[in-house]
């Protein structure tokens, strides 16, 4: 066990998966010599050499498009998109091809591809560097969308994504890249994609959150528990699609109250899908409407204004209290 940042943990998964399986390779902008703009690919070029660590020309659609071809050719590419905002330039390839190959070929050909990308706000970055657009990918059948929240989950889920036979969009909350450390076991570890994690046990209410929202969520939960003497369950979603409906429904049946904290804008996001699931399967167990705490339906403001637009501890705390008091 070593205490690692999320960057180090993702890096560990890449090293170990490339050692384990020589069909795994990494490609993207500045991932080789520069070791990634966040150093996530540190040491890979030195250890595995050029054919397996590719500094590509600057074209997201071609990075994903060629990675699809590599996957069809028997490799397991891990493509890095420098910032998730630029992954939308590859959306045509992702929706039009990566997501459909298995259906198109009646199961004959799959695309075992991972597209990693840092996403989310809070690092004072330029336009297009702070968005949370997981809903866009999650809406596409055939893509899996994974968002780790901690170093250990990032490492284990990335290893699982690389071994997955289908395309996985792996969104890394860049605000959490170096914000804290966690024990990460040295020996390879995977986690099941499609399973949420109980980050904190509790019986009076359940809060669902993912990515960088987990930390303010936990902080808000602690405050409310202390002030009210209640116990609150925190569900760390980890996979956006396919959704772990079972864990969500069980939480409502056991607590009767739910709050969803989402960094992305309010409308048409994962929070809405979670609530639809609750309506389908646990409506009559609810003692209060499920509340969404999210960003507003505006374009992500430039960094001087961004702080006020992302859900913070205070908004989350109030949302939880209102749901408890309903």
């Amino acid at each position: 066990m070593a205490r690692m940042t999320m960057v180090q943990a993702i890096n560990l998964a890449l090293h170990q998966e490339m050692e384990r399986d020589d069909s795994v390779l990494v490609l993207g902008q500045d991932v080789g010599v520069n070791e990634g703009v966040f150093r996530v690919t540190a040491g890979l070029l030195a250890k595995f050499g050029e054919p397996r660590v590719i500094d590509t020309p600057l074209a997201e659609s071609a990075i994903v498009g060629t990675a699809i071809g590599m996957a069809l050719g028997g490799l397991r590419p891990v493509a890095e998109i420098q910032f998730s905002g630029f992954a939308l330039l590859a959306l045509g390839q992702l929706e039009g091809n990566a997501a459909r190959y298995r259906s198109r070929t009646c199961g004959q050909r799959g695309v075992p591809l991972v597209v990693r990308m840092p996403y989310g706000g809070g690092v004072r970055a330029l336009e297009h560097h702070s968005e949370s657009r997981e809903a866009i990918f999650a809406h596409v059948p055939g893509l899996k969308v994974v968002i780790p929240s901690t170093p250990r989950t990032a490492r284990a889920l990335l290893a699982a994504a690389i071994r997955d036979p289908d395309p996985v969009i792996f969104m890394e909350p860049k605000k959490s890249y170096r914000a804290f450390r966690e024990e990460v076991p040295e020996e390879p570890e995977t986690m099941e994609i499609g399973r949420a994690r109980i980050a904190r046990e509790g019986n009076d209410l359940a809060v669902v959150s993912w990515g960088a929202m987990l930390r303010p969520t936990l902080a808000a939960v602690e405050q409310v528990e202390e002030a009210r003497g209640v116990s609150i369950r925190v569900i760390d979603l980890l996979t956006i699609s396919p959704l772990d409906r079972e864990t969500l429904v069980r939480a409502v049946k056991e607590t009767g109250r739910m709050v969803v904290v989402q960094e992305a804008p309010l409308s048409f996001g994962p929070a809405s899908e979670i609530i639809a699931t609750v309506n389908d399967e646990a409506l009559l167990w609810l003692e209060a409407p499920v509340k969404r705490i999210a960003s507003w339906d505006v374009n992500t403001p430039y960094f001087a204004r961004e702080e006020a637009f992302f859900p913070g501890v205070e908004r989350i705390r109030k949302g939880i209290e209102e749901t408890l008091d309903f």
Partner: peptide
Amino acid sequence: WAISTPFEKQT
């Protein structure tokens, strides 16, 4: 240069 990518690797 494009960040760390030299012209020869770009095209």
